[in-house]
Amino acid sequence: MKYIRIIPRLDIKGPNLVKGIHLEGLRVLGKPEDFAKLYYEQGADELIYQDTVASLYQRNSLTDIITRTAEDIFIPITVGGGLRTLEDINKVLRAGADKVSINTAAIKNPEFITESSRAFGSSTIVVAVEVVKQPDNSYLAYTDNGREYTGIDVLSWVKEVEYRGAGEIMLTSIDRDGTGSGFDIDLIKMVSSAVQIHVIAHGGAGNINHIKNAINDGHADAIAISSMLHYGLINQEDNLLNKFNDEGNIEFLKKNVSFKTFGSESLIDVKQSLSDEKIPLRFIA
């Protein structure tokens, strides 16, 4: 049996959990550790921490957050954002991460995938592939959270990523990210049928049906969810709103409005509904 993993993805800027749309226009939602703890208790299968600005400013401020999280949360944590060298990866692993995700550095220097997979093992290396659908319906990979055009075709890129030894691909549709309008099923299907390695689908989850489609029709091995779970938590738990640092755009939180695109479905609800649909998942008692 293969059990589908449901993975909350937490985008981080400085000390805060943030979320944007199309990986842009970041809103502060709270403290990553608080959300991580709640997701852990609700049965998250893994967690992803993505530093949204590390690659832009060439800095890496995540290590404190990783260490605090790994002391308290006993599921695998994948960390990405601005990792450029084997030493960068080593630092993040030593801080308590179990896996790393790389994108910009991998595209600039594909040999980095080979070197890092050899040094740390395939299962430690996740390559993040951020995709923008072109007017002619082709799919191209972008870097720097979807800001930088590369001209690289997604299908040939994911095959190279597999060939060079990465253990997993985190596939983000930039077009769908943060919109809650559903996954790009064609994209997920194209990639998951082209490679034998694990494909984590990300970008577009708005309701449970979307997730079901990504698994049943897209054949994703795992699903990463951000906005839908974060806003779901915020819509459920008012006290989370008081736990943020005042860096960044917090106007949204101060107004205490819920994000209307998303309901208040929790991770528990998601897993229960998928299980009712006979999708194999891990359950905690």
Partner: peptide, 14 residues
């Protein structure tokens, strides 16, 4: 035909 089993196995199992 419908389920692939990637190696390494990465994930939860019983």
């Amino acid at each position: 035909q419908s389920i692939k089993y990637p190696v390494p196995q990465i994930g939860w199992n019983k």
